[in-house]
Each structure stands twice: as C-alpha cells, then as structure tokens.
C-alpha cells in the first residue's frame, strides 16, 4: 500500500497520540463512565491503524509489529484467564471470576476490585486483535511472490 501526501502524514502524526490517549482514558475509566475494555481497545487500534494508512506499509516493520501483536494478544487472553483463576485461589469461596480484591469507595478511580484490571486486559486483547487483522490484510497481500 502506498503512502499519502505530507499534509495527511503530518496531521496523522499529530492526531494519532491523542486518539491513543482517549482510548486509554476510556479503558481506565471503564468502571466509572460509559465505555470499557472493548470500546477503548478498538479506539486504540484505530490509533495504530491510522499511521499505517497514512505512511504506507513498510513490510519489514509491519512484520515485526505483527509478531509483537500476536504475542500481546495471546498474553492478554492468558492474563484474563489467570485473573479468573486467582479468584478461585484467594477469595475463600470456590468461585471462578470471584472479585477477590478490596472494593474501595464507589466512584473513585481505584475501586471495584479487579474490574479495572480486567478492563485493561480486555482492552489490550481487543486492540491487538483489531490491529492484527488489519496488518494481516495489508501485509499478506503484498507478500505473495510473482
């Protein structure tokens, strides 16, 4: 895929970090305001897809990025399962997904036990999944030899 003009590239450079920050905000405040892991993860994936669209695909970089993303995705879903299993160990009762951390005060940023941690893990997983699908579509189409 070819890149775009310098105007688009410069504006992308300015806008992508803001989108990333917004996605991070949505994920971290998932237990307080509308949003959460899924929505924030997709917004963060948008912040990764935008520079690829604007700058064009440089194949070696993208292949490296894809390997990292696969690792990140697998680690995130494993982390989700591990958090669920920790509930079995530490909560006293034998319940999968039991909220074993301290609940805290309603409405504070650090509250609601392990829900914020789950939000972050799911956000990482969704972000990696979306970006991997996009990179697969762009990389593998150019990879085919003539």
């Amino acid at each position: 895929m070819r890149g775009m003009t310098i105007i688009v590239r410069k504006i992308t450079q300015l806008v992508a970090p803001v989108i990333f920050l917004y996605g991070l905000y949505i994920i971290v405040h998932g237990h307080l305001t509308p949003g959460g892991g899924f929505a924030g993860g997709v917004i963060m994936a948008g912040a990764f897809i935008l520079p690829i669209l604007a700058n064009g695909s440089i194949l070696p970089n993208l292949r490296k990025e894809e390997a990292g993303l696969e690792l990140m995705e697998s680690a995130a879903i494993l982390g989700f399962l591990i958090i669920a299993g920790l509930g079995l160990l530490f909560s006293g009762s034998l319940i999968f997904f039991s909220n074993f951390l301290h609940k805290g005060i309603l409405g504070k940023l650090v509250s609601a036990g392990f829900i914020p941690i789950e939000n972050i893990v799911v956000g990482v997983e969704v972000c990696a999944a979306m970006t991997t699908i996009f990179i697969a579509l762009t990389v593998f189409s150019e990879e085919v030899p003539k």
Partner: peptide, 18 residues
C-alpha cells in the same frame, strides 16, 4: 455489590464474566 459505578461494566465483568 460489584463496587463499580458503571452498571454495565459491573454486569459485563462481574456477574456475566463468563
């Protein structure tokens, strides 16, 4: 009981975590 101010997240990540 979930301690989450957002009811939807409380349901999605606690009651319906499966």
């Amino acid at each position: 009981k979930t301690g989450s101010a957002n009811l939807v997240t409380g349901i999605v990540f606690d009651f319906r975590a499966y």
